[in-house]
């Protein structure tokens, strides 16, 4: 049984991961939801024991109520996050008129290029000849003279 449960978790996880590798934003989100499902199933599977519903009157051995509470919390949290991601996907679509990750990557690179030109290159020193250093700071006699006459 543990093997079957583990396999189910693994298949859901793998399907989710596969979808997360897609270019389509929507599929990506579906992948995330699937991985969330896999995690939730695993929490339930991690139950210390399985039996009747833990509702009074209790006669037989009940199922582990703690994992149930944990699963509930986890389900709700992953739902909230998924809903948020959906809304974000909508805004991404509004911003790019696309749900294709490739276009987003393109936009990111364009942005990086813009940044690069804005921020300038690092300037590594290439000229090792230092024989004229120390000469250039005072500009010239005429200039110095001008300073005097003022």
């Amino acid at each position: 049984m543990t093997l079957i449960l583990s396999l189910a978790v693994a298949i859901l996880f793998a399907s989710g991961a596969y979808l997360m590798l897609k270019h389509d934003l929507v599929r990506l989100i579906v992948g995330m939801v699937l991985i969330g499902n896999a995690a939730n199933l695993f929490i339930m599977a991690a139950a210390l024991r399985i039996g009747d519903a833990p509702v009074y009157p209790i006669e037989d051995e009940t199922s582990d109520p703690l994992v149930q509470a944990m699963t509930l919390t986890a389900i709700v949290i992953s739902f909230a996050v998924s809903a948020l991601v959906l809304a974000l996907a909508y805004r991404v679509y509004i911003a790019h008129a696309s749900v294709d990750m490739r276009e987003l990557s393109l936009a990111e690179e364009e942005q990086a290029d813009i940044d690069d030109t804005l921020d300038g290159e690092p300037e590594p020193m290439l000229d090792v000849d230092d024989s004229s250093i120390g000469e250039s700071s005072p500009v010239g006699a005429a200039d110095a003279g001008e300073a005097k006459t003022r």
């Binding site: 978790v9 298949i11 596969y18």
Partner: peptide, 29 residues
């Protein structure tokens, strides 16, 4: 598919090894 398979295997190995433990004896439930 290969990457997804790797991901699935990660989940599988961890999950199976954890579930293979006999359930903890001391518990608060």
């Amino acid at each position: 598919a290969i990457i997804a398979f790797i991901a699935g295997s990660v989940a599988f190995v961890v999950v199976w090894s954890a579930l293979s433990r006999p359930s903890a004896s001391t518990t608060v439930i």
